[in-house]
Amino acid sequence: MAQRGLTCSHTNNNNNNPLDTLVQGFQAVKTTIVNNTPLRHVTKPTMETLPFTGKAANWHDAVREAQGLVHTGNDHDRMMDPAKLLGDDVWELKDHIKRLLGSGHPFMKTLVKHYLASDTERIRPLVVQLMALASSPDQVILDQQRRLGEISEMIYISSLLHYDILDDNGEPANVFGNKMAVLGGDFLLARASLALAQLRNAECIELMATCIANLVEGEVLHLKKNNGKVSMDDYLQQCYLKTASLIAQSCKSSVVLGGNDDSMAQQAYEYGRNLGMALQVNLKMTRLGIFIFFFFCLQLTSDIQQFAKASTSMDRAPVLSPPLLFAAEEIPELNEIIDRQFEQADDLEKTRLLVYQSQGLKRTFDLIHTHQQAAVAVAEQFKPSQAQQSLVQLAQHIST
Rank of each mutant, 00 (worst) to 15 (best):
A173W: 06
K225M: 13
S152R: 01
Q198M: 11
A209C: 15
L166N: 02
D234R: 09
G218D: 01
R147E: 13
M232Q: 03
S159C: 08
H162R: 10
C204V: 09
C204G: 01
I165C: 07
S152F: 03
I165M: 09
Y240D: 14
K225G: 02
L188T: 04
A173C: 09
E219W: 02
Q238G: 04
A195S: 14
M232P: 02
I205V: 14
N227W: 01
S158D: 03
L142V: 03
A209V: 09
D164F: 07
A192K: 04
V230G: 07
V220E: 07
Y235D: 00
N226A: 12
N178K: 07
A173N: 07
F176K: 12
N169V: 13
C211N: 04
N178W: 10
L194E: 11
L207E: 01
G228S: 14
I155T: 02
A195G: 10
G185S: 10
L221K: 03
Y240P: 10
E206L: 08
V230I: 10
C211L: 07
R200P: 08
D167V: 04
G228H: 12
C204S: 04
A192P: 05
R146C: 08
D186P: 15
Q237A: 07
A195M: 12
E206T: 15
P172I: 08
D167L: 09
I165R: 00
S193Y: 03
L183G: 11
N201W: 07
L148G: 02
I157M: 07
M180R: 07
M180N: 05
C239R: 00
V182A: 15
R191C: 10
D168G: 08
V216M: 15
Y163C: 02
M208S: 05
A181T: 05
Q198V: 13
I205D: 03
L236R: 02
G177K: 09
G170W: 04
G170Q: 05
G170D: 04
R146K: 15
D233S: 11
A197E: 11
L183A: 14
L161N: 00
S158C: 14
R147Q: 13
Y156V: 08
E150V: 11
N214S: 08
S152L: 06
L189I: 12
D143W: 13
L148W: 00
G228Q: 11
G228M: 09
L215M: 14
L148Y: 00
A209F: 09
E217L: 08
D186Q: 12
A173P: 02
Y235K: 00
Y240G: 11
M180D: 03
E219L: 08
S159V: 06
Q144S: 15
N201F: 07
N169A: 13
D186H: 10
V220A: 10
A190Y: 04
E171I: 15
G184R: 00
R191H: 12
A197C: 13
L161Y: 01
L207K: 01
A190G: 12
N226I: 01
D167C: 06
D233H: 05
A209W: 06
Q198Y: 04
